[in-house]
């Protein structure tokens, strides 16, 4: 199939970026979206031009590296799918495809489609952990955890940190990301001792990074390739209120 691409090109953080148009032919519907970009890059390299830089690594939907806005949707048209798992059979011959980086001031563009997502790491560093040194642990079965709680914790913990929630949110809010971690640890008995401190610290960091705030439109949930629920945001709010009143 043939495609017309419109891709954001930007040399570095400081440089001005602009869109460039590329035409591709002979794209197989069995290719993944990133393999399609590989084809583009091979062609650019053959012409001695700079390839389009984009973050990617595992190409099986789990590392959370890939991050691009495809035709106005984070990770493209298929729900519950990362860009690397999106396949060209979801497009039609002759389609126009607009490819942009995540847009948020805490995610500055480094080059082309690559953005700096270290703000997420700093949110985790602010409190997204349980303070237990290696060797401190008691037997794994000492604390029975009801299966529904363990399952809910797992659902929240499935976050891959890709940033699609921020990209999709009209306010560029990182609430779903932050809430997923708060919720994951909040569901578990091990997470209780630091529960209040954690939510206060993480929200403080999230605000400090300059993310927008949540207006509960729920686009984040729809954009999340792992289907993290906005219920986690409600839980974060509840924990936050509790921590303030009783903390």
């Amino acid at each position: 199939m043939k495609l017309s691409l419109k891709v954001w090109r930007q040399k570095n953080k400081e440089a001005e970026g602009q869109f460039k148009d590329y035409a591709l032919s002979d794209i197989s519907p069995d290719m993944s979206f990133l393999e399609m970009l590989d084809v583009l890059n091979e062609q650019l390299l053959a012409k001695g031009e700079d390839p389009v830089a984009f973050d990617h690594d595992c190409r099986e939907g789990i590392c959370g590296s890939c991050s691009m806005m495809i035709n106005g949707k984070p990770h493209g048209p298929e729900s519950m799918t990362t860009t690397c798992q999106l396949h060209m059979r979801k497009f039609k011959d002759g389609d126009n495809v607009v490819i942009e980086p995540w847009r948020a001031s805490p995610f500055p563009v480094i080059r082309d489609l690559v953005v700096d997502r270290s703000a997420f790491d700093r949110i985790i560093q602010a409190g997204g952990f349980i303070s237990v040194n290696t060797g401190n642990a008691q037997d794994g079965n000492t604390l029975p955890i009801p299966k529904p709680d363990a399952d809910s914790a797992m659902d929240a913990a499935a976050c891959i940190g890709c940033g699609a929630c921020v990209a999709a949110c009209k306010n560029a809010s990182a609430m779903l990301f932050t809430a997923a971690k708060v919720s994951h640890l909040g569901y578990l008995p091990q997470g209780q001792p630091e529960r209040q401190r954690r939510v206060l610290k993480m929200v403080e960091q999230m605000d400090g990074e300059g993310f927008g705030n949540c207006t509960n439109t729920n686009d984040c949930e729809a954009a999340c390739p792992k289907g993290i629920s906005v219920k986690n945001i409600t839980r974060l709010n509840k924990d936050f209120l509790k921590a303030t009143i009783f903390g």
Partner: peptide, 26 residues
């Protein structure tokens, strides 16, 4: 909140589609 939100996305997308949000919410 609106001022914060505006500052959080200084460069708009060329193409942006809403997903499950309602028109009212946006």
């Amino acid at each position: 909140l609106a001022l914060r939100n505006r500052a959080a996305r200084p460069i708009a997308y060329d193409t942006k589609k809403s997903l499950k949000s309602t028109l009212a919410s946006r």
